[in-house]
C-alpha cells in the first residue's frame, strides 16, 4: 500500500468518525442517562427514526432546521414519557416495552413521514473548520456539524453532572439502589420517567442529525439500525458519557473503512470490511468483560439483577 493510499484511508476514517458518529453520540448519551436511573430503553431506534422525520418535516414547513432539531427532541420526549410511564406500572418489563416503543416510533414516523420523502428541506449547515488544510479530502473531513460539537459538550456536562451535582446523585442512586432512594425520600418512578424523557430528547436530536445533516434526507431506510447499535455502545462505554464519545467515534471510523478501502483499490473482501464496526464491537465487548464492567452497570438494571 502506498503512503498516498494510507493517507486517503486515514482521512476517510477521520471524516467518517466525525460524520457518522453524531447520531451514535446522542443516542448513546440518552441511553446512558436512562440506564443510570435504572431503566433500559431499547426503543431509542424509534426515537431516532421519529426524530429524523419530525426534524425534516418541521424544517421543511418553517424553513428553520434548528427548530426542526428542537421539535425532534420533543418527539423523543413524547416517546420517552410514554416508555417511562408504561414501565412504571407494576410488573412491566422495560425491555419488552422498549421493543414495542421501537416499533411504535418507527411506525408513527413512517405513517406521518410519507409526504416528506420527496420534498427538500433546509439542512443544518456544517462549519468548514478545514479551511487551513490544502488537501481537499481533509477539508471535507473537517466539515463539522454544530450538532457534533453540541453532542461532545453535552457528554462532558453529563459526565460532570452525574458525578458532582445533586441531580446527578439522585439519578445514580435511583439506578443503583431503589431502597436507598426511597429512604432518602426520593420517588424513583418520577426520577426514571424524567430520565427516560430526557434520554428520549437526546435520541430524537440524534435523528435530526440523520435527516438534516448526514446523509441529510428523510426516507424510510434512513436509520438501518443505528439506534440499536448505539444502545450496545453504552455497555461498551460502561455507562460513562465520555467513553460514549470515544465509542461512537471508533464506530464511525470503522464504518468508513469499507468504502475507503474500495476507493483506493483494495476491493477484495469488502463484505468483511463493511462488517468492521460490528466485528470491532464484538472484540471490544469480549475484551471488556471483566470484573470492572460488571461493577459499572447500575445495580437496578433488569439485566444486572
Amino acid at each position: 500500500m502506498t503512503a498516498e493510499a494510507l493517507t486517503t484511508i486515514l482521512i476517510a476514517m477521520l471524516g467518517g468518525a466525525i460524520r457518522v458518529s453524531t447520531p451514535f453520540i446522542f443516542v448513546a448519551l440518552g441511553e446512558t442517562l436512562t440506564e443510570k436511573s435504572g431503566r433500559i430503553n431499547l426503543g431509542l431506534e424509534g426515537n431516532l427514526v421519529l426524530g429524523a422525520m419530525v426534524a425534516y418535516a418541521i424544517s421543511f414547513h418553517t424553513g428553520s432546521p434548528w427548530l426542526g432539531v428542537l421539535a425532534a427532541g420533543f418527539s423523543g420526549v413524547f416517546l420517552g414519557l410514554m416508555h417511562g410511564s408504561i414501565c412504571s406500572l407494576k410488573k412491566v418489563n422495560d425491555i419488552a416495552v422498549g421493543i414495542a416503543m421501537m416499533s411504535f416510533g418507527i411506525g408513527v414516523a413512517f405513517f406521518f413521514g410519507k409526504p416528506y420523502i420527496q420534498p427538500s428541506a433546509p439542512r443544518l449547515e456544517s462549519l468548514p473548520l478545514g479551511g487551513w488544510a490544502s488537501n481537499p479530502a481533509l477539508q471535507q473531513a473537517l466539515e463539522i456539524n454544530p450538532l457534533f460539537i453540541v453532542g461532545i459538550l453535552i457528554a462532558i456536562v453529563m459526565w460532570w453532572a452525574l458525578a458532582n451535582t445533586r441531580v446527578g446523585l439522585v439519578v445514580r442512586m435511583t439506578g443503583d439502589s431503589e431502597p436507598a432512594a426511597r429512604a432518602m425520600g426520593i420517588n424513583p418512578i418520577k426520577v426514571r420517567i424524567l430520565a427516560t424523557a430526557a434520554g428520549g430528547f437526546l435520541a430524537g436530536i440524534g435523528g435530526a442529525f440523520l435527516s438534516l445533516s448526514y446523509p441529510g434526507s428523510w426516507n424510510e431506510g434512513l436509520s438501518s439500525g443505528q439506534g440499536l447499535m448505539a444502545v450496545a455502545l453504552v455497555i461498551f462505554a460502561r455507562w460513562n458519557p465520555l467513553r460514549c464519545i470515544l465509542a461512537a467515534l471508533l464506530f464511525g471510523a470503522a464504518g468508513a473503512l469499507g468504502p475507503a478501502l474500495q476507493s483506493v483499490g483494495i476491493s477484495q473482501g469488502y463484505y468483511f470490511f463493511n462488517a468492521a464496526p460490528y466485528i470491532l464491537t464484538l472484540f471490544i465487548m469480549v475484551a471488556a468483560t471483566g470484573s470492572n464492567s460488571a461493577r459499572a452497570a447500575p445495580g437496578e438494571l433488569s439485566i444486572a439483577k
Binding site: I11, A12, G216, S217, G255, A256, G258, S263, Y270, Y271
Partner: peptide, 22 residues
C-alpha cells in the same frame, strides 16, 4: 464501491464521499 445491500443511506453517503475523495 459496493455497499453490500440495497438500501444503506449512511454507507451510500460514505461511499459517494470516498469516490469523490479518490
Amino acid at each position: 464501491i459496493f455497499t453490500g445491500d440495497w438500501s444503506l443511506p449512511v454507507r451510500e453517503a460514505e461511499a459517494a464521499n470516498a469516490l469523490v475523495d479518490a
